[in-house]
Amino acid sequence: MLVLDQLERSFGGVVALAGLDLRVAPGELCGFVGPNGAGKTTAMRCAVGVTTPDAGTVTWDGAVIDLERRRRIGYMPEERGLYPRMPVLEQLVYLARLHGLSAAAAAANAAAWIERLGLADRADSAVEELSLGNQQRVQLAAALVHDPALPLLGEPVSGLDPLAVDVMAEVLLERARAGVAVVFSSHQLELVEGLCETVAVVNAGRVVLRGDVRSLQRTGDRRLRVEVAGHAMWWTSLPPGTEVVARRDGEVTVALADGVDPAEVIAVARRAGALLHVRLEQPRLSELFRDAVDQRVGR
């Protein structure tokens, strides 16, 4: 269990973390999302010990993350970086050995990852000679080459092509099924929705929404999507407990608070014109995200 407890950190008056709490259980694949500047990067840096929090603690299985434990983390910094002039294979072997693997194990793991990520023909090329996408693959391999017991990945899909994203998703699921806690941050909410069982939404240095993706969707405001013929502005007179959250190509999306009967909204729409389509859905992750971080919603 990875526990970030009441983390606080500010940089010269700018608050990055304002009492951030997060618990990630073994076998959990947790999506870590939040708008830019929410504190995701700082929280991850605190977890790997790159940044020291002003207050609060980071523990893993009940103990402070010491050097030995840090070695078993698989960190992929959001700020990418590898030795530009070092060949791919040699670089991965080096990083694996820095994490405590023997020379033989490091060589075997590095070769396996190069193969799996389709970099076999570039093993001896310097990283700077690779395309950006391939550099991203190497960066992913660098985070996983030592079989980490706790992968912490910052934006691992950014810059990856769909094939590499598939490989990455497969790898992360595999690690989670093996009983490892996996945390990864991303702005690609559809991917997080499809891949992760749980999600933590961060805003202004705090976790504002946390839990199982499916149950969050169940408890979140349902979305009623309605399209009415004609141009009437029927949505201006909706009952209390509803809110228009999107309008696109004539389709109006209305968020329904608990206890609001969708039929009331549909009735309002029908008075304005013929219904073209009506759909009642659980909210998407991106909608939950917006609800959670949007100040105007007041959460």
């Binding site: 840096r45 050097l67 070695r71 960190y75 970086g81 590898l82 530009p84």
Partner: peptide, 17 residues
């Protein structure tokens, strides 16, 4: 500067003191 400029240093300091 090479390590700092290429940002590989973040990966390194996450692993070794």
């Amino acid at each position: 500067i090479e390590e700092k400029g290429s940002r590989v240093v973040e990966l390194l300091v996450a692993t070794v003191p």
